[in-house]
Design a protein around this nucleic acid. Structure first.
Length: 480
RNA sequence: GGCGCAUUCGUCUAGGGGCCUAGGACGCCGCCCUCUCACGGCGGUAGCACGGGUUCGAAUCCCGUAUGCGCUACCA
């Protein structure tokens, strides 16, 4: 049977790294098996929906290179792909369940339910409060209806036996029916719950494998029971572990960047994020770390997915991003850099000669977002770093070095990095200073900072006139 | 409280009875390279949660304990 998987986020905000990992594993599994990847938006809870979230999710997936075959944007034969557009199907299914006796109307008010739940919490039947209206008499129903009480629809979960789930990642897991309780299918206002909409859509969309977070593991048996009551085939499941923050709590905003948009803004490349997340809970041979999307597709398998939770390691991601950046050829690097600067509306975005800066920064940047800090001052005039400027003033050699540098560069011809190096080395010899002593004041003069790109290349990039202007400006800040 | 999942260096992981005096990677430390910062090279640090079994032999299998996380919603 052809593989069909789905990624089914609810549009409550930006796409999170945990969500990306889920999307990625689904996508890799589909591509590996030549199957179909479906993107379905679970927007049954209008209360929690965030404006623009659907577009945002789609945009993030596009950026990551995860193309879903069927989606709200791309359409497909099993649509619509937004649950808010599938309401009649949920109600139809509920009608069938009601008729077959698999579901029933429950008239409990939220307050009644909560009170009962508090009482039952420490008993040996904590799920009891959910089935209080399971066997209402005709008279009781009539009375509730007469009172005008709204009804919710609950699933009639078997009271005995158990449901066994054969999870592809975790193996065999048994759940006692008695502890499940009667799941709410339709809310008071008639809106479907996740527990109804999600498995029904999977069924109607022909989903063969459900790959999702471990937090959904406990709802698997009730969804399975529901699908079977509807006469459908329940898909295979693979429950992925959670991604945690450094404190072992579920990853969230508190732990720093966690959304795709944030990594994008910081200048991460999508391949690095994808590669890193692929390795967050899965491995190929335990040794190979850098893998292209194509290699991941070829190598991915659910039986190598690790069931244990993983802490999200920003540092390793940063390293990997730098590795990807360094591996780019100059042209690709320039393209990525321009795209990033434009994307972030940087004032440097339109600058000419950016390509010339690539060799100066490529091996130094861990993320494209660091570009501005490293060489922004070469592209446009900036105020120097006050701390560096203060150090310049303190430097006993600064005056002599700056003067010597000016005379060494004034008539230098041609004005290339190699010639600049020779000239500056001459300055060192003449003053009997080590390069590290002599170059620091020059660096501060040229770049306005103690941390910068290569000195000779920077000077060559600036050109003679601008270099001399900067040296002169620094000279005025130095006594003597 | 109940149910479920998980537990190998600080972190991501390899390991599925003898190949393990536990391998790789990030981080960290040291050295080298060096015009700063990086890159790169070399070396080092650090781990099988605990307790019982099973077995000639256990990181690997079983049981228990502990700890963490998830679920226990008219959220998903």
């Amino acid at each position: 049977m052809a593989v069909r998987v789905r990624f089914a986020p609810s549009p409550t905000g930006f796409l999170h790294v945990g969500g990306v990992r889920t999307a990625l594993y689904n996508w890799l599994f589909a591509r590996h098996h030549g199957g179909t990847a479906v993107l379905r938006i679970e927007d049954t809870d209008t209360e929690r929906e965030a404006a623009g979230a659907i577009e945002q999710i789609q945009r993030s997936l596009d950026w990551l290179g995860l193309d879903f075959d069927e989606s709200p944007a791309a359409g497909g034969a099993h649509g619509p792909y937004r649950q808010s557009e599938r309401m009649e199907r949920y109600h139809g299914a509920v009608e069938r369940l009601l008729e077959a006796g698999h579901a029933y109307r429950c008239y409990q008010t939220p307050e009644e339910l909560e009170a009962a739940r508090d009482r039952a919490r420490h008993t040996d039947d904590p799920a009891a409060p959910t089935r209080l209206h399971r066997e209402l008499t005709r008279e009781q129903v009539a009375r509730f209806e007469a009172e005008g009480r709204p009804a919710i629809i609950r699933f009639r979960t078997p009271l005995e036996g158990e449901t066994v789930v054969e999870d592809l990642v975790r193996g065999r897991i048994a759940f006692e029916h008695r502890l499940l309780g009667d799941t709410v299918l339709l809310r008071g206002g008639g809106a479907p719950t996740y527990q109804l909409a999600n498995p029904l859509d999977d069924m109607e969309m022909g989903i063969t494998h459900v790959i999702r977070g471990e937090d959904l593991l406990p709802s698997t048996p009730r969804q399975r029971l529901l699908v079977e009551a509807l006469g459908g085939a329940f898909p295979q499941t693979a429950h992925l572990s959670m991604i945690l923050g450094g404190d072992k709590k579920r990853l969230s905003k508190r732990h720093g960047a966690a959304s795709v948009e944030e990594f994008r803004a910081a200048g991460y490349v999508p391949q690095a994020l994808v590669n890193f997340l692929a390795l967050c809970g899965w491995s190929w041979d335990g040794e190979t770390e850098i893998m292209s999307l194509a290699e991941l597709v070829e190598r991915f398998s659910l039986d190598r997915v690790n069931p244990a939770p993983a802490v999200f390691d920003h540092e390793k991601l940063a390293w990997m991003n730098g590795a990807y950046l360094r591996a780019l050829d100059a042209g690709a690097y320039a393209t990525a850099l321009r795209a990033h600067l434009a994307d972030q509306a940087s004032p440097l975005a339109g600058a000419e000669r950016l390509d010339e800066l690539v060799p100066l920064v490529q091996e130094k940047l861990g993320a494209l977002g660091e570009f501005d800090a490293l060489v922004g001052s070469l592209v446009e005039s900036r105020d120097p770093d006050p701390e560096a400027w203060a150090r310049l003033a303190q430097d006993a050699n600064a005056a002599a070095v700056l003067d010597a540098a000016v005379s060494a560069l004034t008539d230098l011809e041609p004005f290339g990095a190699e010639q600049v190096e020779a000239a500056l080395r001459g300055v060192c010899e003449a003053l009997e200073l080590k390069p590290r002593q002599a170059f620091q004041p020059i660096r501060i003069a040229i770049a306005g900072s103690t941390v910068a790109a290569g000195l000779y290349e920077s000077i060559a990039f600036l050109g003679r006139d601008e270099s001399l202007v900067r040296l002169a400006r620094a000279r005025t800040a130095v006594a003597g």
